[in-house]
Design a protein around this nucleic acid. Structure first.
Lengths: 381, 381
DNA sequence: GCATTATAGTAAACTGGTTAACCATGTCGG
DNA sequence: CCGACATGGTTAACCAGTTTACTATAATGC
C-alpha cells in the first residue's frame, strides 16, 4: 500500500483528484485560504524518494548523496515546505526551547536589571537556534510543580533562573541535574547548582575602595535581600573593607532598601537621621541609590558636597540621575548570554559544572567626592 | 486502598513481568535516574481501559461515565502522569503558546516601557493557560520570514507585536488574519490590523491642557519616532492645542529625542539654545524627559522655576527623578493584559475586529509650575 | 417483542516527523 | 574470484497524544 508511487506521472494532480480512498477527506481546515499544510510525505512523493530520505536531507545526514540532497532540497524550496517542529520535537527528544524563570515580583519584567539579563539570554538563544519562554515563579507556580511540569510536558529543555533567593527551596529539585538549570547572579553552595554571576565581591570592593580613598569613613550601606547569597556578599565586603580601614562598622549604618527607589529613599532617611555624620551612602543597586538621591535632594543635602552616593549595577539611566551616579558596572547582558550558552551546552550533554564569574568595574560620575570631613578640616586650617 | 484497583491485582506488577510481547524493549532511557516516561498507553494498561478512554478523561469528554472518569483519574494522579504537550499539540492543532515580538532595539527588554507591557501579557497569558515566547524582530528575522515561520512550524498560535512602526511592512502579511496578531500601542489604518493602545491623543491633551493652564505658551516638544502612528498623534495634538490657545507653533520648538535619555538631553539643548524664551518642555516619554532634566540641571536652569518639564508614560522611576516628574500615566500593564486576552479570543475563533483604547491620566509632580513669565519679571532670567 | 435510540467504550487511523534495521550495489584486498 | 566493507537508500517501527467510526449494552417506544 505504501509503495503507491507507481502512478508517478499523476502525482501532482492526484492530490486533488483522488476520491478519498481512506474514506475521510484529509482537509483539516488549516488557513482560511485553504493552504493544505505540506508534510514530509508530500515532499517524498514529489521527489520520488522515501520519507526517511527527506528527513535525512532536512537534517543534513551524510548518508544522503549530494545529488539526492540537491534534488530533494530543490523541491522543498519550491513548495516552501517547513517541517513541523512539534513532530520533530516529539521524536527527537529536544524542544529547542528554554525557559527564563523570574520570581513573582510585581511587574518583574519592567525592571531594567532583569531586562538586561533577559536581553542577553534572548539574543544568544536566538543565535543558537533556541526559543525562549518566560515563566513567572509565583508561589502557586512552585506549589503546583510547574517548574518540573514544563520539563515533563516537554515545553523546554532547560531553564535559566534569576532573582532567586535562599527561600526558593524548589531549586533543590534540580540538584540531581536531571533537568538542566543555570542560576543567574546567585549561587547555592548547599545545592551545587550551575551558575553564572557577576563578581559581586570584587564589585563591592571597587566601590568601597573608592569611597575609602575619597576619605570617607562613616559610610552608610543601603542593602537589600539578605537572603540572596550575592547580596550578602556585598554586605560582607562592606564590613570587611571598613574594618581593614580601621573602622568598626556600626550596625545602624545599615538599612534595608528592598531594592526599590522608595525603599532606598527611606533607608537613606533612616541612616542619616540616626547618623548625621555619615558622609557617604553605598547602595546595593542603582534604584535604591536613585531613591537616596531623591531623598537627599528633597532634604537639600548637597550631593556630592555633603554626602556622596555610590550605586551598583550601572543601569542605563544611572548616567542621567541628578547628579549622575557613580556606580559599579555589572555585565548583565553578558551574564545572560553566557548563562544561555552554558545551559545549551548542558542540554547537549556536557557535564562539567558551570561556575562562571564575570568581572565588574567602577564607573565614576558625579555623585561622589572627597569626604566633606576633609574639606572642613582644610577650611579650618 | 490503592491495592484494589480492579479485579487484577497483578496489574501494577505486570508492568515489569510481561515478557515484552512486541519485540523491542521499550525503555527509552529518559532521565539518568531511570524514570521511564509514563504515557497514555501505560495509564490505559494500568486502568484496564483503552487509550481513547484515557484521552477522553484527560479532556473531560462527557462520553466517559463518572465511574470510569474517577477510576482513571485516580491512577493518573497516583503515578503522577502528565500528558506530553508536544503530542497533544501535534494532533490538536493548538500549541497554547503565543509570541511577543519586539523590534531590534539594543537590549530591548531592558526598557521599562516594554517591560510593563510584557508583564501584562505574561501574567494574563499564564492565567489563561498560555505560554509566552520572546522574539526579537531584527531585520534578518523579518527577511527570513521568521515571523511567518513561527506559525508554520507550529511554535505559536498567535503573536502580540509591540514597538513597530510604519516601516515594518511585514505587518501587511497579517492583514488576511490567517495568523492572529494584535498590535500594541500603534495602529495601522491602511492594514486594518487588530490593536490595543493607550489613548495617546487624550494623554497628550491632558499634558498640553495642564501646561497651558499653568500659563505656558512657548512650549517645546521633544518628540520621537514619527514613524509610529501613536507618536505622531502626540505631535499633532501638541500643535492643535497650541493653536487652540492662540499660539502658532514654531517648527524649531520641536526636536527629536529618539526616545532615549541622551536624545532627550540633546533635544532640550537644541530647543533651549535656539529659543531661550521657551518656558516648558513636553517630552514624548519619561526617558527623554529625564534626559532633559539632566541637561537643565547641568546648565543650572531651575526646574520648574525657570522651565517646566512634562513627561509621558509614568515609568516607575519618574517619581524619583529630581525634581520628580509630572507626567501622563499610561496603563501599559493593562494594555499588555488586554492585548493578550483579545489575542487568545482571536485564536479561539472570535472574528470581531479588535480596536481597544485605554484611558490615560495626568500625574502632577514637581517638575511643572506656573510659567516663569507670569511670575513678575523680577526673578531669574 | 422488536426496532429505536442513548450510553459508554474500543480499535484503528491520524497528527508529522526521526531512526534503527535492513538491503542492494559498488569497491577493494588477498 | 570471493568475502569484507563502504555507500546510499528504503522499510517500518517508533514518539505520545486525539478523533472518528464502530460496537456492545441498556433503556425506551409502540
Amino acid at each position: 500500500m505504501s509503495v503507491r508511487d507507481t502512478s508517478s506521472s499523476s502525482d501532482l494532480a492526484s492530490n486533488e483528484q483522488r476520491p478519498a480512498p481512506g474514506s475521510r477527506a484529509r482537509r483539516t481546515r488549516q488557513g482560511a485560504s485553504g493552504d493544505k499544510p505540506v508534510s514530509v510525505r508530500d515532499i517524498a512523493r514529489l521527489a520520488n524518494v522515501s520519507v526517511a530520505t527527506v528527513s535525512m536531507v532536512l537534517n543534513d545526514n551524510p548518508r544522503i548523496s549530494r545529488a539526492t540532497q540537491l534534488h530533494v532540497q530543490r523541491i522543498i524550496d519550491k513548495v516552501g515546505y517547513r517541517p513541523n517542529r512539534l513532530a520533530q520535537s516529539l521524536s527527537s527528544k529536544y524542544t529547542q526551547v528554554m525557559a527564563i524563570i523570574i520570581p513573582a515580583l510585581r511587574h518583574a519584567f519592567a525592571d531594567a536589571y532583569f531586562g538586561e539579563v533577559i536581553s542577553g539570554v534572548c539574543d544568544r538563544a536566538g543565535k543558537l537556534g533556541y526559543k525562549v519562554i518566560l515563566e513567572q515563579a509565583k508561589p502557586d507556580y512552585i506549589r503546583s510543580k510547574q517548574h518540573i511540569e514544563i520539563f515533563e510536558r516537554r515545553y523546554v529543555d532547560g531553564v535559566v533562573c534569576m532573582g532567586v533567593n535562599d527561600r526558593h527551596h524548589f531549586l533543590a529539585e534540580f540538584r540531581d541535574r536531571q533537568y538542566p538549570l543555570v542560576v543567574v547572579d546567585n549561587y547555592f553552595p548547599q545545592w551545587d547548582l550551575d551558575y553564572v554571576v557577576c563578581d559581586y565581591r570584587a564589585g563591592a570592593e571597587q566601590a568601597m575602595n573608592y569611597l575609602l580613598q575619597l576619605g570617607h569613613r562613616e559610610i552608610g550601606l543601603i542593602y537589600a535581600a539578605p537572603d540572596i547569597r550575592t547580596a550578602r556578599d556585598k554586605i560582607e565586603v562592606y564590613e570587611q573593607k571598613l574594618r581593614a580601614a580601621g573602622v568598626e562598622p556600626v550596625p545602624t549604618w545599615k538599612a534595608d532598601g528592598k531594592f526599590t527607589e522608595a525603599g532606598g529613599a527611606e533607608a537613606a532617611e533612616q541612616i542619616l537621621t540616626r547618623h548625621p555624620n555619615v558622609t557617604a551612602l553605598f547602595a546595593a543597586n542603582d534604584k535604591m541609590a536613585i531613591g537616596a538621591l531623591h531623598y537627599l535632594n528633597r532634604k537639600r543635602i548637597a550631593v556630592p558636597q555633603q554626602v556622596s552616593v555610590m550605586g551598583f549595577d550601572d543601569m542605563q539611566h544611572a548616567a542621567f540621575a541628578n547628579p549622575s551616579l557613580t556606580t559599579v558596572h555589572l555585565p548583565l547582558y553578558e551574564v545572560g548570554a553566557l548563562a544561555c550558552e552554558r545551559l545549551i551546552e548542558r542540554i547537549r550533554g556536557k557535564t562539567e559544572k558551570v561556575a562562571e564569574v564575570l568581572p565588574t568595574h567602577l564607573v565614576v560620575r558625579e555623585s561622589t567626592a572627597i569626604a566633606s570631613r576633609l574639606l572642613a578640616n582644610d577650611e579650618h586650617r
